Simulated scan of single mutants.
Amino acid sequence: MKIAVMGAGAVGCYYGGMLARAGHEVVLIGRPQHVEAVLRDGLLLDTQTFTAHVPMAASTDASAVAGAALVLFCVKSTDTESAAAEMRPHLLPGALLLSLQNGVDNADRLQAALPDQEVAASVVYVASEMAGPGHIRHHGRGELVLAATKTTPQVAAMLTDAGVPTEVSDNVAGALWAKLILNCAYNALSAIAQLPYGRVVAGEGVPAVMRDVVDECVAVARANGVRLPGDPHVAVEQLVLSMPNQYSSTAQDMARGKRSEIDHLNGYVMRRGEALGVATPVNRALHTLVKLIESRADPA
C-alpha cells in the first residue's frame, strides 16, 4: 500500500517509519531540513527495541499525497484546515485519512474540510521526539485506537502486522476524551516547568493540581454526553510509569519557540465548560500560563 504522512513530526515519523520498515511504500511530507536528511540517509528509527535506517520517500509538498490509499494526518491541531486545503487537489478518491492528532475534534474538522473523503479519528499513545533531522527517537508505547469504519479493520490489521498494536473501537469519542484528559493533566505542567513527566509528578503540590484538572475534564466530558472508558485518575497516575522521561509535545513546541496546541487541550476544555456551564478554573489557569509564556516569543 502507498501511504502518505502529512506532517512528518515525531508522531508521523514513528508510524510512517514502522510501516516503511514492514515493506509499505511510504512518503513523508515535512520540513525541508528533515526531508533532505531522509532522502539522503533514510529515516533513522531509534526505538526501544531496535535502531535502523529506513529508506523512504520524502517531500516538502502536499502534492506527494497523490496516489496514497492511506494518509496519516499528523499536523498540529492549529494547522488542520490549512493542511487539508493543501492536500485537497491531490487526494486519491476513496483514500482513508487517519487523524493522528491531539485534541478531540480534529477528525470532525478534517471531515468538514474534505467532505468527499473517508476520515477516521484515532487515538495515539506514543512517546517519541525528533532527535534531529531525519532522526526519530522512540521512548515508549506506540499503540493506536481507530474509529470503526468500513476500512479501519483492514488498516488496523496492517498496522498490527507492522509492529503497531492497533484496535478498532465503537467508542472512539470516549477514547479521545480519555487521551485529552491525559494531555490536560501533563502537557501544560511539563511545558511550564520544562521538565519530563517523572519530575513533574514529583513536584510539590503537583498531584493535587493534576487531580483537580482531571475532575474538571471529567465533569465537562460527562456534561458533553461522552462515555469515558476506565478511571481517568488511574490512567493519569499510570502514564508516568511508562513515560517518566517524556517531555510533553507542548513542552517540546515551547522549547523550540513554536506555537503549541494548548488551545485544543486545556483551552478546549475551558471553552466547552463555558458552553456547558461547568467551571474549569484550573484548566483556565494552566491555559493562561502557557499562553503567557508563548507570548514572550512574539515580537509584538
Rank of each mutant, 00 (worst) to 15 (best):
Asp253Met: 11
Val164Leu: 07
Val214Trp: 00
Tyr186Phe: 15
Gly132Thr: 03
Gly9Gln: 06
Pro232Gln: 14
Ser99Thr: 13
Asp116Cys: 03
Leu276Gly: 13
Lys291Glu: 09
Val11His: 03
Met158Trp: 00
Pro281Thr: 05
Leu289Tyr: 10
Ala279Tyr: 01
Gly257Gln: 10
His90Thr: 05
Leu28Trp: 14
Arg109Trp: 03
Ser242Lys: 14
Arg227Gly: 04
Gln48His: 10
His34Ala: 09
Gln111Met: 04
Ala173Tyr: 08
His135Glu: 10
Asp212Met: 11
Val218Asp: 10
Glu118His: 08
Ala64His: 05
Arg272Pro: 00
Ala131Phe: 12
Glu261Tyr: 07
Val201Gly: 06
Pro232Val: 12
Tyr268Ile: 01
Gly7Ala: 10
Val206Ile: 13
Gly17Ser: 12
Pro299Ala: 14
His90Tyr: 15
Pro207Trp: 00
Arg296Ile: 05
His287Leu: 09
Thr51Phe: 00
Thr151Glu: 11
Leu180Arg: 08
Ser82Asn: 08
Ala157Arg: 14
Met1Tyr: 02
Tyr197Asn: 15
Leu241Ala: 14
Met270Val: 15
Val240Pro: 02
Ser248Val: 07
Glu143Gln: 15
His34Thr: 00
Asp298Lys: 12
Glu25Asn: 11
Ala219Cys: 11
Ala202Val: 03
Val278His: 01
Val209Gln: 13
Asp105Lys: 12
Glu25Ile: 04
Leu292Ile: 01
Leu98Ala: 06
Asn224Ala: 15
Asp263Ala: 15
Met158Glu: 13
Ala221Ser: 13
Gly67Ala: 10
Arg259Cys: 03
Ser190Phe: 03
Val234Tyr: 11
Asp170Ala: 11
Asp108Met: 09
Glu204Tyr: 00
Thr47His: 07
Pro299Arg: 12
Ile181Tyr: 01
His264Ile: 08
Leu70Thr: 03
Gly205Asp: 12
Ala251Phe: 06
Ala173Arg: 15
Leu98Phe: 02
Pro115Cys: 08
Val206Lys: 05
Val164Lys: 03
Ala127Leu: 05
Arg199Lys: 14
Arg256Asp: 13
Val214Ile: 11
Ala178Ser: 15
Leu96Cys: 12
Ala223Tyr: 00
Thr166Tyr: 04
Ala112Gly: 09
Asp116Ala: 14
Thr152Tyr: 04
Leu91Asp: 00
Ala191Glu: 05
Ala219Glu: 09
Glu143Ile: 00
Leu28Ser: 01
Asn106Leu: 09
Ala83Cys: 04
Val35Met: 07
Ala251Tyr: 09
Gly198Phe: 05
Val290Ala: 05
Thr152Phe: 09
Gly273Cys: 07
Asn102Met: 05
Ala285Cys: 08
Ala219Trp: 00
Glu204Arg: 11
Leu241Ile: 04
